[in-house]
Write a protein that binds this DNA or RNA. Structure first.
Length: 531
RNA sequence: GGCUCAGUAGCUCAGUGGUAGAGCAGGGGACUCAUAAGCCCUUGGUCGCGUGUUCAAAUCACGCCUGAGCCA
């Protein structure tokens, strides 16, 4: 039993519901990996976790893309969804819910939520005309357009003139409530620079936004006026609520909100910050619901210092990447090498350098060399030593003793790079320690006891490193535990019970005298392809 | 035009008033348990530019330059 079992609090986290206009790109993979790591760390601590991802499938853009492919919108969505799900599987993403906004039960949730907002008097009919970008599903200000009425974001497509009756949500009504909320919850929007952006935006005055479209078939009809279709964001954001339903639940708001609401963390790319940090809380206020804990907008990825884009022809295909290098490698690179929140770059050279240096050389080889020695000097068993027997002046012991505290703080702050750095610090100390103690010489000199203490201290440090890195590289962690003779499935949702954090995050756990596994490289060095 | 964030070694970044740091990459060395891996040493920076405050500034203030982004 986990003695650290927490006061019945739960943890729910979302990725964006990805738009199924196309197959997943590396940015979606980046967000999803990060969310998975956060979820895995909470599970490790024994907290009940619900990790939500999914797809946003409505809107004119989808309708047109499907038409262009000569498929029905639903058939198109079904196909793209498979692409997302298969990528998440390859990347070892342990999500708990995959919500599709085309799900029938989602319609029920949207209708009920809409009714609450309607009853609150926050929806009214208005008139809207202007230039409309179908790709953005948004009206654009004329001054923002490029020459020839082109959308600045989708510069290859002309915007369309629209003149229509729409329904609006009274966002303006919530300006002061929102500002109060941001002041009361300074950590609601992260990182800080994103928060500043939002505060500045809101302080300029909020305008109501439209939540319906006419001339759009692919979406939910507005309950109070079936000639209108609900605008994608109103529909999509509510996917987070629908996702909370247990499969057997009747699709009602009460059921959905019972266990996991409010969401603790919405993880998003910085491009959709406004919807999550402004529109969404206002909608929830209108419906009288508690607000989420935080919205974290991470940065964008570049490739070799350049923006990625289809038009530039320099996209990075996540499927290709994971097929070539494996899930752990991809997960590790993006979280270790990019400071979460800032923009970051992918370059193949750096990718190979980082993985070889950290996972193959420092960590992988450390385990390998130590296991070999244990095989030779200790009959292939964990030395008959307990953590308490290790002299206090072994700095691995003192470093190991405080590592979990440091790493935990880093994970909680979503500072994955720091978490990796801290663990790597212990790993590097191990390599240095081995060279200083030179157990191969100790053994030859007949100093059996000291040899065993040294090897135990290193094996235990590697175990701890694996445990603390397991949210990021679950496959490696499993391999390391296995070679240490410990059965552990870090993909198990109940990991917090089977390998309790209070026990495994502490240096000194490794049981003495058990049989070690066979020493095999856990992470192959990547040979640089000759150009 | 207004605002935000960033600008420190080839690369990625720490350092927020008291004599410039880490990892990676590059160069050299000793060792051998190991996935030529780890260990040791080392090259490399007038901390974007300028002015000011201070006994003292990468660190504070003001101005400017460059990059990323927000202003529906």
């Amino acid at each position: 039993m986990g003695s650290n079992s927490v006061d019945n609090h739960t943890f729910s986290i979302t990725t964006p519901l990805y738009y199924v206009n196309d197959l997943p790109h590396i940015g979606s993979a980046y967000t999803t990996i990060a969310a998975d790591v956060i979820a895995r760390f909470q599970r490790l601590k024994g907290v009940p976790v619900l990790m939500i991802t999914g797809t946003d499938e409505h809107g004119q853009k989808i309708q047109r893309t499907a038409e262009a492919r000569e498929k029905s919108p639903q058939a198109h969505c079904d196909e793209i969804v498979l692409g997302f799900q298969s990528l998440w599987q390859r990347l070892n993403i342990a999500y708990d819910r995959f919500i599709r906004t085309t799900a029938p039960r989602h319609q029920a949730i949207v209708a009920e939520f809409f009714q609450r907002v309607w009853d609150r008097g926050d929806i009214y009919e208005g008139h809207q005309q202007g230039w409309y970008c179908v790709s953005c599903e948004e009206f654009k200000e004329e001054r923002d357009l490029l020459p020839e009425q082109r959308c600045p974001i989708h510069s290859n497509k002309a915007v369309e003139w629209r003149d229509e009756q729409n329904y609006f949500f009274k966002l303006s009504k919530y300006q002061s409530q929102l500002e109060q909320f941001y002041a009361d919850q300074p950590d609601f929007i992260q990182p800080l620079s994103r928060r500043n952006e939002v505060l500045s935006f809101v302080s300029q005055g909020l305008q109501d936004f439209s939540i319906s479209r006419v001339n759009l078939d692919w979406g939910f009809p507005m309950p109070t006026d079936p000639n209108h279709t609900l605008y994608v964001w109103f529909d999509a954001l509510l996917g987070y609520v629908t996702a909370l339903l247990d499969p057997a639940d009747e699709p009602t708001l009460d059921n959905a909100l019972q266990k996991w609401w409010p969401i603790q963390t919405h993880l998003i790319g910085k491009d959709i910050l406004r919807f999550h940090a402004v529109y969404w809380p206002a909608m929830l206020m209108s419906a009288g619901l508690p607000l989420p804990g935080r919205v974290f907008g991470h940065g964008f990825l570049t490739k070799d210092g350049q923006k990625m884009g289809k038009s530039l022809g320099n996209t990075l295909d996540p499927v290709d990447l994971v097929e070539r290098y494996g899930a752990d490698a991809v997960r590790y690179y993006f979280l270790k090498e990019i400071e979460f929140g800032r923009d970051g770059d992918f370059s193949e050279t750096r990718f190979i350098n980082v993985l070889n240096a950290d996972l193959a050389n420092d960590l992988g080889n450390l385990l390998n060399r130590t296991l070999n020695m244990a095989g030779r000097y200790c009959q292939g068993q964990v030395p008959d030593v307990m953590g308490d027997d290790i002299p206090a002046d072994y700095d691995l012991k003192s470093k190991g003793a405080i590592l979990a505290t440091t790493v935990e703080a880093a994970y909680e702050a979503l500072a994955f790079s720091q978490a990796c750095e801290a663990v790597l610090g212990l790993v590097r100390s191990c390599n240095k320690f081995l060279d200083e103690k030179a157990p191969w010489s100790l053994y030859k000199q007949g100093q059996q006891a000291e040899t065993e203490r040294v090897l135990y201290a290193v094996l235990e440090s590697v175990r701890l490193a694996a445990y603390l890195l397991s949210p990021i590289v679950p496959g490696l962690a499993i391999a390391i535990y296995s070679q240490l003779g410990l059965a552990a499935d870090f993909n198990d949702r109940a990991i917090g019970q089977t390998l309790p954090y209070s026990v495994h995050s502490r240096w000194g756990y490794l049981p003495a005298s058990q049989a070690l596994g066979k020493a095999e490289p856990i992470f192959q060095r990547i040979e640089r392809a000759s150009e």
